[in-house]
């Protein structure tokens, strides 16, 4: 019996021996998995060209343990990303590679990733990536409370400074220096992100960089060096 097909994206592909590829994939039904895809010569190279990031596939795989064997893959949609849109999408892939656990299905995040790739085709859409980063952070338990501080339950005040720590949530900044600093103004702006002004988007960028660094235990994503936003 053939294994079942799941929608999937390739996050990273690397050559493996002479005729194979090692694929890190984000699948709807099994989360992040690693597969080996084997190829012969000639016309099979068509599917080799298809096994690239930013193409939605229907894929199936077999095997047990950490590394599976790709059984079948069909391309369903290609996201023609260009220029800075492509760089942003590579950043999203690196974030998923670092932040996701193997074999843990995240169907909601999968749908958000799909939607993000769609939005990244539009180079002027500067919010697509930050909103996806917030989705990934939320999946990891880094949820910003946009209405109340988590310590005292007070309403968020635009002029107040706050700090966020994954184990404490959001709390008023009393100058003790730990956690990621966030302004009340940004938290309120995030209730309607599409209406944010350039200053608020810049503050969001800095905040996301802090939060992701915290999520990745002090590491910065390499793709972050490739765009200046």
């Amino acid at each position: 019996m053939s294994p079942e097909l799941s929608p999937a994206f390739i996050l990273r592909r690397n050559p493996y021996r002479d005729t194979s590829l090692l694929l890190d994939m984000f699948t709807r039904d099994a989360g992040k998995i690693t597969c080996v895809a084997k190829f012969g010569q000639g016309k099979n190279s068509r599917s080799k060209g298809m096994l690239e990031p930013f193409r939605q596939l229907d894929a199936s795989w077999t095997g047990k343990g950490e590394v599976f064997t790709l059984f079948n893959a069909e391309e369903k949609r290609r996201f023609p990303l260009k220029a800075v849109g492509l760089v942003r999408a590579v950043y999203a892939n690196e974030l998923l590679l670092r932040a996701l656990w193997q074999h843990q299905p995240q169907p909601e995040l999968f749908a958000q990733y799909q939607q993000t790739l769609f939005r990244l085709e539009n180079l002027a859409d500067v919010l697509a990536l930050p909103l996806f980063e917030l989705d990934v952070l939320a999946m990891a338990g880094y949820v910003l409370n946009l209405w109340h501080d988590d310590a005292a339950g007070h309403d968020i005040e635009p002029a107040m400074r706050y700090r966020f720590r994954p184990d404490h949530g959001l709390y008023a900044d009393v100058g003790e220096g730990k956690g990621v600093p966030i302004s009340g103004n940004l938290l309120i702006a995030l209730r309607e992100p599409e209406a944010m002004n350039p200053d608020q988007r810049l503050e969001l960028r800095h905040t996301l960089d802090y939060l992701i660094q915290m999520l990745l235990k002090g590491k910065t994503l390499n793709a972050r060096k490739l765009f200046h936003e």
């Binding site: 690397n14 892939n93 994503l221 793709a223 490739l226």
Partner: peptide, 10 residues
């Protein structure tokens, strides 16, 4: 080539 996912930078 640049490959941030493999740690290859400018």
């Amino acid at each position: 080539r640049l490959s941030p996912l493999d740690g290859i930078g400018p």
